[in-house]
Design a protein around this nucleic acid. Structure first.
Lengths: 197, 197
DNA sequence: ATCAAAAACTAATAAGTGTTAGTTTTGTTG
DNA sequence: CAACAAAACTAACACTTATTAGTTTTTGAT
């Protein structure tokens, strides 16, 4: 009979991956050493290789896990057929939620992907470009239906995705604003702007 | 009589700094080696030390040069006394301009500051926090004068600064939109939002 | 208790790191 | 041309890197 993996239903590999995400976020992929990771897990460095393939493999696992999450969500958004603004709001709120719930992994996927080896690097970037194109398509449909101002759709998506990344910084200043209020305010600013009417 | 420094009025140190900024941006500070830098400059690694103090010193020079630029600009903005929206627009456009004209250095200051050694790291972060606070104060003044919607000022500034960072990504897709149009569109989205009226 | 598999350990390797010392080349001035 | 300083070079150092090999310990089921 299969044994309960490690402590609390997490396999050792999952524990390592979680530690790696935190380490890669704080120190950066290049500056983070396998010895650092081993310390965090509470083991000697070579022991890690009983569970993982390589340092690079860890980065790949993290990056593609995140990329697949976002792809899966926009799949759903495209299926249903509400107003464009509802679709955009759903995307914005999903990004915020991901950032708050899976901070380390999202951060690593956002910042450390450049250390992916080829051909994974190309795969990752093309998956991201595809995601952006689908987001752009939603905005353009909204412009056609006149639910959205006639600004450049590319710029709109770029601005939204970048603004959402600001939450990376927010994480460290939790006291200032509650998560719920931050989410609502940020969505409001992007949808309605800063200036009154 | 003083000799013209290197080629084209740039001292060797300036040439090294420029190469370092580009290298640190593309490979990241940790992954970039002094031998890489030497190759880019066209020299052996130890020769660099005739002109610079250390690898870390290069990062410090880049980061604080940028930080001082932004501080100097907000000094100016605070002096004049136009409408709040004009002030904010001036800040937004300055950030965009900096990003387009000094891409490598801005990028490095935005992403690689965490490799600054103490106490420079603390200095840098406190200079940034001060900048944000002054930006927030401008927004709050605008809210009081009812020139701006009553959203959380912190969130507003966070959203704006983050959106501006999106230009880092844009740099590689120049074809899609012209610089001028991008600047106007991004400013418009942040000031007026996405949704019609 | 026994046996096998999983996972820990130590030791070692080859490559790469920033940087220093010491020397040679280069370039400019008298 | 001689002399001096600036800036290049080679060689080397003391470390750190990811990873492998080989061995021992731990774990779990019979």
């Amino acid at each position: 009979m299969a044994k309960i993996k490690s402590e609390k239903n997490f396999s050792k590999k999952e524990v390592i991956l979680k530690s790696a995400a935190e380490l890669f976020r704080t120190k950066g992929f290049s500056a983070a050493s396998m010895r650092n990771l081993a310390d965090a897990v509470g083991v000697e460095a070579p022991s890690l290789y009983n569970h993982i393939g390589s340092k690079s493999q860890l980065l790949q696992d993290i990056c593609f896990k995140m990329a697949n999450c976002y792809t899966a969500h926009i799949d759903e958004v495209e299926l249903v057929n509400p107003e464009t603004v509802t679709k955009i709001e759903s995307i914005l709120r999903f990004h915020i939620e991901m950032m708050l719930l899976h901070f380390d992994e999202v951060f690593v996927a956002n910042h450390e992907w450049k250390y992916l080896p080829e051909p994974m690097l190309s795969n990752f970037l093309s998956q991201r470009r595809t995601y952006e194109k689908r987001f752009i398509a939603i905005v353009e449909a909204g412009i056609k239906k006149k639910e959205i101002k006639k600004v450049n759709a590319y710029t709109t998506v770029l601005t939204c995705l970048s603004a959402l990344r600001g939450l990376e910084f927010w994480q460290r200043n939790k006291k200032n604003v509650s998560a719920k209020q931050l989410e609502d305010d940020m969505v409001a600013i992007l949808l309605h702007g800063i200036i009154k009417n």
